Simulated scan of single mutants.
Amino acid sequence: MTVTRSDQSIVLIGAPVEEGAGTAGAIMGPAALRTARLVATLADLGHRVDDRGDLMLPPSLPTAPEGMDRARHYQRIAGWSRIIADATEAAMGQGGLPVVLGGDHSLSMGSVSGVARHCAKAGRPLFVLWLDAHADFNTPATSPSGNMHGMSAAFLCGEPGLEDLLGDKPAPRLAPENLTLFGIRSVDRDERALLADRGIDVIDMRLIDEFGVSVLMARVIERVAAAGGHLHVSLDVDFLDPSLAPGVGTTVPGGATYREAHLIMEMLHDSGLVGSLDVVELNPFLDDRGKSALLLVDLVASLFGRQVVARGGGRR
């Protein structure tokens, strides 16, 4: 096996958030990824790795606005979102490529917001690739469960209900047309209508079965490249088929195969467009002897340059 060495400065930010999910255990996700040798794997690829450890909630939490009873653990998610956004923005401002280790998918409300602030300052359009079984496009008004990990994408696109989540800090909104939901196979009724109304690019497993991941991913990459955009990738464990990665609280059959997932990561690396990453929803309590964590580390390695046969570097 060969590797490409682009010598990037990767900043690891642990975000042990589990309050956004309906099943406890994602709090252990960052530790599991480190135990699976994420730091050493990235260093072996020639990258500079700055592991800044895990963030911690401050003792004083934000006050919940009126009507937040349909968003479970709002105060804690608001607290997490604010410190994650600050940490991610700071890492990018220092020239680093932030990799946020989760933790449930509510952490993306913070991580992508931090990236959006940086992109707004740089005058660069932000695109988000959401690799997930679920659309995560609920709001407090539409969510059947109230679990905030299912509201992340909607919040980032400016849907109503969570306007005060980041407090008085800037909260640039992601243009709905710049969001791609990839690998989707579980969508709630009200989400379906909202996605259609907003014109979100939804690539579900039916499209993947028909056209293949290479064609569909090439379209995403071409759109970002044409706009000169920054691409943020948010990788949820349940994007993968649960036979490969059982360590997640929201498994849905029929997910991405081992080769499909690696091909996506390899194409993203070759594009040279990825400037930030989330790895979310890993729940070691539900895993099988670290199987999911090890696969995630392998996928991250493919995203950052590991190749079976050398084909040349990306654009960086």
Rank of each mutant, 00 (worst) to 15 (best):
L244K: 06
D197C: 09
L131A: 02
D50V: 05
V112L: 15
A36P: 14
M217V: 12
G275S: 03
V112C: 15
T35W: 00
P98D: 08
R173Q: 13
S108W: 05
A133R: 01
A31F: 01
T23C: 09
A87V: 10
D190E: 03
R223A: 13
G96F: 04
P160I: 15
T41L: 06
H73S: 12
L263G: 08
L107C: 13
P58G: 14
L273H: 02
P242H: 08
L244M: 07
G254M: 01
M151H: 07
A256S: 10
R311Q: 09
L174R: 11
H232M: 08
L107I: 15
S292C: 11
V297K: 11
R189L: 08
A256D: 00
V3C: 05
R82P: 12
D236L: 14
F182K: 02
V279H: 01
A141N: 05
T251C: 06
V17M: 14
A133C: 11
G158L: 02
E266F: 03
S60A: 13
A85H: 01
I200N: 02
R185K: 12
L299Y: 09
H230N: 09
S143A: 05
E191A: 05
R185M: 11
V308Q: 09
G247T: 10
E159H: 04
L12V: 09
S111E: 07
V300Q: 04
L235E: 01
R37C: 14
P284I: 11
H118T: 09
G212H: 04
M267H: 01
P62M: 06
F211M: 10
R316N: 08
V187G: 08
S276F: 03
S145H: 13
T63N: 12
R189A: 05
R198V: 09
A116N: 05
P59M: 12
V252A: 03
F239N: 00
A153W: 04
E266S: 13
H73A: 11
L303E: 00
R117T: 13
D201Y: 04
W130H: 15
V11C: 12
C119P: 11
T2H: 12
H269W: 09
V213F: 04
R316H: 10
P125G: 10
A40R: 13
A120L: 13
T2R: 14
E89S: 13
M28W: 02
Y74S: 12
V252Q: 08
G53P: 06
D197P: 02
Q307G: 06
G29P: 03
G167F: 02
L295Q: 07
R259S: 13
P125L: 10
L303C: 00
Y74H: 15
L181G: 01
V213R: 00
A261E: 01
Y258C: 12
G14V: 01
V224L: 11
L277C: 10
